[in-house]
Design a protein around this nucleic acid. Structure first.
Lengths: 203, 203, 203, 203
DNA sequence: TATGAATGAGCATTCATTCAT
DNA sequence: AATGAATGAATGCTCATTCAT
């Protein structure tokens, strides 16, 4: 049992080492050599923990995603409005430092870039699973908002998708316009708030 | 006297040859060798017409963009409603064949992918110019719709951006969900229609 | 007859255009394209006047060499001492501008560089002919100096060679030590003066 | 445990393989492919031992230079005259075979050729360091000769430089005149002997 | 005479992955 | 488990020269 924990631990260490490199240089531009050096292990050792470079990227993504989920779970309160819950979902308080948030944005962009040219279907499938998870959450919030009388919505599925797709669109826009993390976040918030206002019940 | 050559024509020929390759294999994955072979010229010849590989991509994109603009200009009528004009903007009737539309979608995705990892700023700047062009057009339509009494809109700029950003988001979603061109288009339309309906004046 | 003169004239024009390029970028690094552009003719045209790139270099060298000879012939006086004649030979008053002298030095270095890796024997033969010409001149001066009682020399041939070989060595040293033309010239003069002093008759 | 490899030894092996090629074809004309093939390793392997092609050239030069220094150290005797020490410095007994001496000459010429067109300053700096080393040695010998009463010299620095510069000049002359190693060496010796005789104390 | 379009061989360097130790 | 030496395919770009017009 101890061994397995160690194995998991080492995997995480290597993945953590890769984060900086991936976000600074890009996934393709980061060589296994660099990851090994940065993780303080031999190149061959990496292949004992990961089948290939892509798998490292997925591990990185899993780590960050899990961090986000955990941090979100902590800051969410059941007495929050649906609107607050949704907007809070796109906050990234798990990133303590400014730098981490910028890194997160860059990583996400690199990840989307890889997915867009993916031939294997690995990135695609992985990415799609996040779409579904996010959709389940957002539409859950919206339904809750309807039940509570906060919203009036015709097509919850559609609105939920609009929000999630907007997030992806903002990632692209952020790169094109050379936005900082905060600018990108503000842009996204603005759009979501606009969408939610349209279906908010006025007293 | 030198051989008489229509330089523009030859440039286009080479670019056209590259389109298939770019959309099938991706931009990075397509080698200059392949483009040359596919265009039926020597490798060196390509460099008489293009400074480098990137310039080919931009030429390809310019060609398609121009085709789209021209086709749109032809099918647009001044008596159309603003809604029809906007929705018609995302039609791609310039692609006659089914295959061309799929190609268009794939190319767009590859282009976005390259832009997302662009270090030089070339792709980014080029891409941003399209954002601006599209924004000018969409917000123009919205303003026209307001004037005609078709819409009631608080923040034209915001809505216009929402629409354009949604397009980018749908590109990402289309790849993740392995959508065909038609599915992607339907998805986009659905979202735009939803947005426009929210601000459509009811009689 | 007029035609032949024109032909010579055009050859010179092209060669003159090449001088700047050769001295700035080096012989190998200068492309025929650049020479053509700089000369204001088409690439193919160059081949009507020169068999290949090497021939341009030789033409350049011939021009400069002829200029040197003519300028030297003008400034030499029969009543000069042998010492003055020899030292005057390594002056480059035909270069009016500072820039031209630096260019001359660089060109000479590039030329020697090409000669040192020459496989065809063309550069080598060409270069050797200059050795012989210079030797004839220098040893002529030395003999004259002996006759006039200016020098006492055991082995005129050897001293003459020493002087010529020193010139080549200084070219190499000048590059290694990043010398300006003047520094290189001073260095050469110093060495020649030293050599000549050893065999100067004291009254 | 990884394969046990003497990295220094392998580096030398590769460099040794390059020597033949460099001297036969020239440095620029020798491709990494050829070096790899000749060394019996894959192209990529070379880059595990050398950063780039230039580094191979420097390694080659270091090896030969070290060989020369070691061989010279062995054959020098403290009771030799300064003249013998200086002349012995330009002997190349470390080259056992005739072929090796010719190779040495050719290599030196190629190296000078590269230096003469060097833009980076690498070759230049490297070359200059040899100038300095040689100057220290030669002037050391001359001073010793003066102290022992063997020479009478006004300007030791100048004479030392003359000798070193002559060596470079002879390299150029040797190529132009298609000299064998022995001819080149004889020529150099002749000149040095002449210079030293001029300042030798007669009893 | 002049043009300039076309050619295509040539080359340094990178890097994911393997596998002998 | 860990290492790190070795691999070799893959690629954008240059340029002297030719030759159809």
């Amino acid at each position: 049992m101890a061994r397995i924990i160690d194995k998991e631990e080492k995997r995480s260490e290597i993945a953590r080492s890769a984060i900086d490199l991936f976000s600074q240089k890009g996934i393709v531009q980061t060589s296994m050599d660099e990851i090994a050096k940065s993780a303080g292990v031999a190149k061959g050792t990496i292949y004992l923990y990961f089948k290939n470079k892509e798998e490292i990227m997925f591990a990185v993504w899993d780590m960050l995603s899990q961090q986000h989920d955990e941090a979100y779970a902590k800051r969410i309160r059941s007495d929050m409005s649906a609107r607050e819950k949704i907007l809070g979902f796109f906050d990234f308080t798990e990133c303590e430092k400014e730098h981490d948030k910028e890194q997160m944005l860059t990583l996400y962009q690199h990840f989307v870039s890889s997915m867009l040219v993916d031939k294997t279907g690995l990135y695609t499938a992985y990415f799609e699973s996040f779409f579904e998870k996010d959709h389940a959450f957002i539409s859950g919030c919206l339904h809750e908002g309807i039940k509570k009388g906060e919203f009036y919505i015709n097509n919850v599925d559609l609105l939920s998708h609009t929000i999630i797709i907007l997030l992806k669109g903002v990632l692209v826009k952020a790169k094109a316009s050379n936005m900082s993390f905060y600018e990108a976040q503000q842009t996204l918030m603005q759009h979501i708030i606009y969408l939610l206002e349209q279906c908010t019940r006025k007293p």
